[in-house]
Amino acid sequence: NADDNSVSVHIRRGDYLSEPKDTPYQYYHCPIEYYTKAIEFFKLKFNTPSFYVFSNDIEWCRIHLGTERINYIDCNLGHNSWRDMCLMTKCRNHIVANSSFSWWGAWLSKHNGITVRPEKFLTNVENPDYYPESWILIE
């Protein structure tokens, strides 16, 4: 849905939460506050934004994000997960997680919208060139 108010929201949990703590690179786990601030940003920006949530833990998202103008995409599982990225590219605006899947969903969108991003990709490594400069930081 490429209307001006469509916003993809990618929330990655699962493997990010179960990753052993002794691995050399620790993925940053975006807190719920990041997503609620990012959603509020778009609610202030647009009169009636429509949010499309993509996640490997939709039930957690439903509990923590509610239902106001939020559509949960929960039909693309397993080998069909690539369809989520395809649908993400159809949105005009994006709330990305620190995930390459999320990054590509926003980057491949042909719509000139707004993308917001978290402050970190990895917890223990600085990588300032990971996100395009035009993507808006939400802390």
Results as ranks from 00 to 15, higher is better:
residue 3 D to E: 14
residue 11 I to F: 03
residue 11 I to W: 01
residue 15 D to T: 09
residue 16 Y to V: 05
residue 20 P to V: 06
residue 20 P to A: 07
residue 20 P to Q: 07
residue 20 P to R: 05
residue 20 P to F: 05
residue 20 P to E: 07
residue 24 P to V: 11
residue 26 Q to F: 05
residue 27 Y to N: 15
residue 32 I to L: 15
residue 32 I to D: 14
residue 33 E to H: 09
residue 33 E to M: 08
residue 35 Y to W: 06
residue 37 K to R: 09
residue 39 I to G: 07
residue 39 I to T: 09
residue 41 F to E: 10
residue 41 F to L: 12
residue 41 F to K: 12
residue 42 F to K: 09
residue 42 F to P: 08
residue 45 K to G: 14
residue 45 K to S: 14
residue 45 K to A: 14
residue 47 N to W: 14
residue 47 N to I: 13
residue 47 N to Y: 14
residue 49 P to Q: 07
residue 54 F to H: 01
residue 54 F to V: 01
residue 56 N to Q: 04
residue 59 E to Y: 10
residue 68 E to S: 15
residue 69 R to C: 13
residue 69 R to D: 15
residue 72 Y to M: 09
residue 72 Y to C: 09
residue 73 I to N: 11
residue 77 L to S: 14
residue 78 G to L: 09
residue 82 W to Y: 10
residue 86 C to G: 13
residue 87 L to D: 07
residue 91 C to Y: 02
residue 93 N to D: 05
residue 99 S to R: 01
residue 99 S to L: 03
residue 100 S to H: 07
residue 105 G to M: 02
residue 105 G to R: 00
residue 105 G to I: 02
residue 106 A to G: 04
residue 107 W to I: 07
residue 111 H to G: 04
residue 117 R to W: 03
residue 118 P to A: 05
residue 119 E to A: 15
residue 121 F to P: 06
residue 121 F to K: 08
residue 124 N to R: 06
residue 124 N to W: 04
residue 124 N to A: 06
residue 126 E to L: 11
residue 127 N to I: 15
residue 131 Y to P: 00
residue 132 P to G: 00
residue 132 P to Q: 01
residue 137 L to F: 08
residue 138 I to E: 00
